[in-house]
Simulated scan of single mutants.
Amino acid sequence: MGGNDDFWVFGYGSLVWNPGFDYLERRSARLAGFHRSLCVRSHVHRGTPERPGLVFGLDRGGSCVGMAYRVAGRDHEAVMAYLRARELVTHVYRERAVSIRLTGGGSVHAVTYVVDRGHPQYGGKIAAEDAARIVMTAHGRSGPNVEYVTNALTEIHALGLRDPWLETVAAHLKR
C-alpha cells in the first residue's frame, strides 16, 4: 500500500459514520477473524482517565461487517497521518493490513486498527448492563459516549445487520 496506487481503509466503529477523510469509493465489507467489540476503555475521545468511556475495538474471533473506503494513492500520506493521529492516540490499537471481502464480490487489502489485548485500556468482554452504566456517564474530546454508541448502532442497522449485545446496551441506555 502506498505510492501512487489507491488503497483501502476498513472502518468498524466511528469510521463507519465519520471517516474524516476524502475517499473515492465507499462499500460495505466483511473482515474474517475479528469481531466488533465495545472493549476499549476510552481515555481521550469518549471519556477521560478519571471516567473512561467505551469504544469499539476489533477483537479476535468471528467476523465483522464494516465500511471499506477506497482512497486515492495521492492522498496516502495525508490520510495515514490523519488515521494514526486519530486511532493511535494511546496505542491501544495496532495498525494492520488485512484482507477484506467487499459486498458484491472481490477481496482487497485494507488498513485497519485491531485492539491490543495486552494494553491497559483493553476491557475485554463486558456485561451489557455494565457497559451501559459506563457509557451513560462518559464524555471525552469527541463528545458523549452515548452518542458514539447510538450512532454506531444506527449505522450497523443501516447496513442491514443486527448486533443483539449492542442492542441490549442501547436498551439499557434508554432507561
Rank of each mutant, 00 (worst) to 15 (best):
residue 2 G to F: 11
residue 4 N to R: 10
residue 5 D to I: 02
residue 6 D to E: 00
residue 8 W to L: 02
residue 8 W to T: 00
residue 8 W to F: 01
residue 9 V to S: 05
residue 10 F to M: 11
residue 11 G to N: 01
residue 12 Y to C: 03
residue 17 W to N: 10
residue 21 F to P: 09
residue 23 Y to W: 14
residue 31 L to Q: 10
residue 31 L to T: 12
residue 32 A to H: 07
residue 33 G to C: 02
residue 38 L to N: 03
residue 38 L to D: 00
residue 38 L to M: 10
residue 42 S to P: 09
residue 43 H to P: 01
residue 45 H to M: 09
residue 47 G to Q: 00
residue 48 T to S: 14
residue 53 G to V: 00
residue 56 F to V: 08
residue 59 D to T: 11
residue 62 G to K: 12
residue 65 V to R: 11
residue 67 M to L: 14
residue 70 R to A: 00
residue 71 V to W: 10
residue 74 R to H: 12
residue 76 H to I: 05
residue 76 H to D: 10
residue 79 V to C: 05
residue 80 M to H: 00
residue 82 Y to G: 01
residue 84 R to P: 09
residue 87 E to K: 11
residue 91 H to Y: 02
residue 94 R to V: 09
residue 95 E to D: 15
residue 95 E to G: 14
residue 95 E to P: 14
residue 97 A to S: 12
residue 97 A to G: 06
residue 103 T to R: 15
residue 106 G to T: 06
residue 108 V to R: 11
residue 109 H to K: 13
residue 110 A to C: 06
residue 113 Y to Q: 06
residue 114 V to Y: 08
residue 115 V to P: 10
residue 118 G to M: 06
residue 119 H to C: 10
residue 127 A to N: 05
residue 130 D to T: 15
residue 134 I to C: 07
residue 135 V to S: 12
residue 137 T to A: 15
residue 137 T to L: 15
residue 139 H to F: 01
residue 141 R to V: 11
residue 141 R to F: 03
residue 141 R to S: 08
residue 143 G to T: 09
residue 143 G to K: 07
residue 145 N to M: 08
residue 145 N to G: 06
residue 150 T to N: 08
residue 151 N to I: 07
residue 158 A to F: 02
residue 160 G to A: 13
residue 162 R to S: 04
residue 163 D to R: 08
residue 163 D to N: 13
residue 165 W to N: 08
residue 167 E to I: 04
residue 169 V to L: 02
residue 172 H to K: 03
residue 172 H to E: 01
residue 174 K to V: 02
residue 175 R to A: 14
